[in-house]
Design a protein around this nucleic acid. Sequence first.
RNA 1: GCCCGGGUGGUGAAAUUGGUAGACACAACGGACUUAAAAUCCGUCGGCUUGAAAAGGCUGUACCGGUUCGAUUCCGGUCCUGGGCACCA
Length: 914
Amino acid sequence: MPHPKIQAISRKYMQSNYHPASIESEAQQYWHNTGAFTASETSDKPKYYCLSMFPYPSGKLHMGHVRNYTIGDVLSRYHRMKGYNVMQPMGWDAFGLPAENAALANNVPPAAWTYENINYMRRQLQSLGLGIDWSREVTTCTPEYYRWEQWLFTRLFEKGIIYKKTATVNWDPVDHTVLANEQVIDGRGWRSGELVEKRDIPMYFFRITQYADELLQDLNKLDGWPEQVKTMQANWIGKSFGVRFAFEIPDEVGTSLPSPAGGRGIEGEGKHPQNNLLWVYTTRADTIMGVTFVAVAAEHPLATYAAQNNPELSVFIDECKHGGTAEADMSTMEKKGMDTGLKVTHPLTGEQVPVWIGNYVLMGYGDGAVMAVPAHDERDFHFAQKYDLAIKQVISPRPQAGEGAGVRDVFSTNEWQEWYATKDGICVNSGKYDGMNYDQAIDAIAADLAAKDLGEKKVQFRLRDWGISRQRYWGCPIPIIHCKTCGDVPVPDEQLPVVLPEDVVPDGAGSPLAKMPGFYETTCPKCGGAARRETDTMDTFVESSWYYARYTSPDCATGLVDERANHWLPVDQYIGGIEHAILHLLYARFFQKLMRDVGVFGEATAEQNLDEPFKNLITQGMVIAPTFYRIADNGKKLWINPAEVDVSTDDKGRPTGATLRADGLPVTIGGTEKMSKSKNNGVDPQAIIDEYGADTARLFMMFAAPPEQSLEWSDAGVEGAFRFLKRLWKATHDHVEQGVMAAYTSGELNAAEKALRLQLHQTIQKVDDDIGRRRTFNTAIAANMELLNALGKFNANSDTARAVMQEALEAIALMLTPIVPHICQTLWSSLRPGSDLLDQSFPQADQAAMVQDEIELVIQVNGKLRGSIRVAKTADKATLEQLALAHEAVQKQLAGASAKKIIVVPGRLINIVA
RNA sequence: GCCCGGGUGGUGAAAUUGGUAGACACAACGGACUUAAAAUCCGUCGGCUUGAAAAGGCUGUACCGGUUCGAUUCCGGUCCUGGGCACCA
C-alpha cells in the first residue's frame, strides 16, 4: 500500500487541460492534512525564520499583501528545498484607528469588526497557498498577546525607560478629541472642519534616546539590510556634534519666569542661577559672533513672560498654536515672528541681542530656542530680510590663488548664495577668532564658553523620545494606576492583563474608556486606597515592535517568550513595504534591545547575536495602477475603478481614451498611482484568484518587477502569466502521455541534446542565484520561460532525447515550486509518480554539462560593436588580437591605418582603438 | 522644507564587478489553422536612414557636462517623479 500522503495526490494520468481551481484546492488540502509547514524546534537542519510584516485586518487583502506574502513564501519554500528547517508565521496587527472609524460609520464595536475581518482575510491568505505555520498565529488585540506588552511596560517603567512628560497634540475644539496627523487636513479637523489647535497633555514616553548611540552603531551589524534603509535610519537618529550655550537673561526678567528658560542647564554647580539663562544648541558655533537675534518657541517661558503686558504678542502666540504638529507642515509654512521687546546678553561679545518669537521654533525640540545667524543660515536670512533684522557676515570664503587674506565682501554680489551655509570658510569680523577655520573656531569658542560656565560641546541627536499615549479606545490599555498618595503605580503582575472591554462603540468624542467608571475605578495596589486607572492606550506601533518574538512562543503563558525564542531568533529574513523603513523598523530594533536588557531571552549565546531582530531585510515596492475620474458638479474628482472602464488604444497600443462601461461615456485618464481607496484604483486580488487561480496571481506578481521596485498592475500581464502556466502544463502533459522515464544521467548525446542540457544547467545555476542571492524572481521566471521555449523547439524523437526532456521538465517543476507551488505539485507527481514534491531538493547544476570548447567574442572598434568571432576557449591574447585585426569589419574601419591599442577582455570582447 | 529612492522601446522590464542596450513578457501588426470567431501556433517589432534584396550606416538609456579604449552603470549639475517626516499602518 503506498504511503497515504502520496496516494492522495498521485494521478496515473494528467488531465489534458490546466484547471487551477481543482489542483489548487487539492494541493492546499494536502499541505493542511500533512501539516507540511508546521515548524518544529527539534529538527537537526539549520533554522530559517522567514517573516513578512503582518497585515492590519482592514477588511480584505489588497495587492500589496499578495506581493509581500508571495515574496516571503518564495523564499520560505526555496530555503526548505535547500535543506533548511523553515518557520513562516502569520498574525494580525489588530489594534488601530480604522476599527474606530468603522465603528463610527457602521455603529459596530471595533472588536467585532476586527475579528470578522480577520476570519475573512485568513481564508484569503489560505487560498494563496502560502506555506504558513498557522499554529503560531498571533492576534495583537487579544489579552493573551497584550498581557505581555503590559508586563514589559511595567518592567520598563520601573527601570525608568518609560517616563511621563507633556507633549503637544492636535486638538479638535469642536469634537473635543485628539486628532492623528492623518485626521488633520489643511490644518482643520477632518470631521468638524474646524481649525486644529496645539494642546499640551501629559503622556508616557519611551526613552529611546538612551539607545540612540547603540541604534546608530548597530546599523553596522546589518549587512543584510539595504543601504538606503540604513542611511535613512542613521539620518533619522541624526547624531550631531555641536555646542550648547546660554544667553544671559536680565535679572528682573529671570526671577519672574515660571521655570528655567530652556530646560536643565549644565549639570552641577554653576556660577549662574539657571533662571537667568536662555539655552540654545547649535552645530555652527563657528558663526556665534554673527548672532543678531534669538528666536524662541511660542510656548517658551520668555514668550509667556513678554506677552503678559502685550496683547499683540498674546494674539500672535495664540495664532502660533493653530495648525497641525506634523514636521512637514512646520517646515513648509510661512515663517512668521514677532519681537518680544526683551534683550539677552551674548555670552562672548556682551552685546544685547533681541529675542523674537518664531512660529517655526518648536518647544518640544531641544531647548525651544535657537540662535539666529542670518548671514550663514538660509532660514535666518529670509527671516531677517522679512523683519529687517541685522545681517552680520562672520565667515569668508578661503582666499583664492593670488588673492590676499581678509574679508571678501560677497554680500554685495550674488555670490553669497554659493557658499554662505558651508563649513569651508574662515572666520572674519569675529575678533580673536578671525582667521580660524571651522574646527579651530569651534574648539576656541567652546573653550571660552566653558570658562565662563555658559556652554560646552555637546553631542545631540535628532531622534526624540517616543510618546506612546493615545487618547483612543481600540488599543492596548496602559497598565498604570494613578493614586493620589502613591503617584503613578504600575499594575502588579498578578493583576495583568488589564483587559480592554470589547463591546464598546466609540462616538468620536474623546476616549470611551474615560467615560466608563467600571473600567477606570480601581484601588491602589500599594496603599489600597481609591485610585483611577489610566484610560489612555498605547501607540499601535508598540504591538508591532515585538510580535516577531512572540511567534516563536505563541502559546507561552508564563512569559513574553520561552526558550523557543532562542532557537528561532533572530529573524533570518524580514520582508515588508519600504514605507516602514524608518519608524516600524527602528522601533522593532529598539524593542529587541529592551527585551534583551530586561532579560526576556535569558542566557543567549554570543553567536546568536540577539542585539538585532532582523538579519536580512527586503523592502518591497508599492503596487500601482492607472486611475480614472470624472469631474463632478461640485468640482470634486469622482474616481472610477479600472475594472469598470474600457480603454481604447491607437495602432501602437498607446491609450487614446477611456469610457465607463456602464454608460459608454468618456472618463478622464489620470496618473498611475499606488492602489488606494481614495483613488479607487484597487484591483481585488480575490477576483484574480477566482478567475485564474493563486499560481497565476503569484506568478504575475513575481514576474512583473523585482521586489524592491514598484509594480504596475496589468490585466494583460496576468493573462500572459496564465498562458505560460498553460504552456508548461501542456508541455508536461504531452511528454507524460508518451510515458514517463528516468531523467538523463549519462551517455552519448548529439549536438541538439548537448545544447539543451547546456541551457538547462545554465538555467539552474542562474535561477538558484537569482532566487537565493539576488532575489530577482522576475529574471528567474524569465530564464524558465526561455528554457520552456527551447523545449518547444527540441525534437524528443529518441529514448535519449526523451530522457533529456524528462530531466528538463523535472528541473522546471522544481525550480518553479517556490513561485507556483500548486501546479508544480501536480506536475511533479505526474513526472515522478509516487514521489512527493515536498521532499525534493532544489536542483543542482551539472558542471559537466556546462563545459564549452568554443565561445563567442565581440569585436569592437573604438568601443563600437563591429562584429563577433567564435574562438577556442583556450585561445591566448596574441591569437585573439590577430583574429580581430583580420576581421573584415575591422579592416574596413581601419581603412589601412594601424591600431593604436588593442584591449582584450577575456571571455567578453576585443576592442581595437584606431 | 529636510532625509532616502527612481527615470531605459507603444507598455512592464533585462543588461549581476565599467564591456554586445532592449533578454523575458505585454500590446500592436502580418501569417497559419477555422465556415467564422475564440483559443493555439509561426513571424515582425527603439528611432532615422541606404538598398530590389541580402546586408549596412547613423542615432538612442530624463536633460546638460565630465572621467574612460569603452558609461544605462562612475563623478558634478538640472528637471520630473515616488516613499518617509515621529498620532495612518
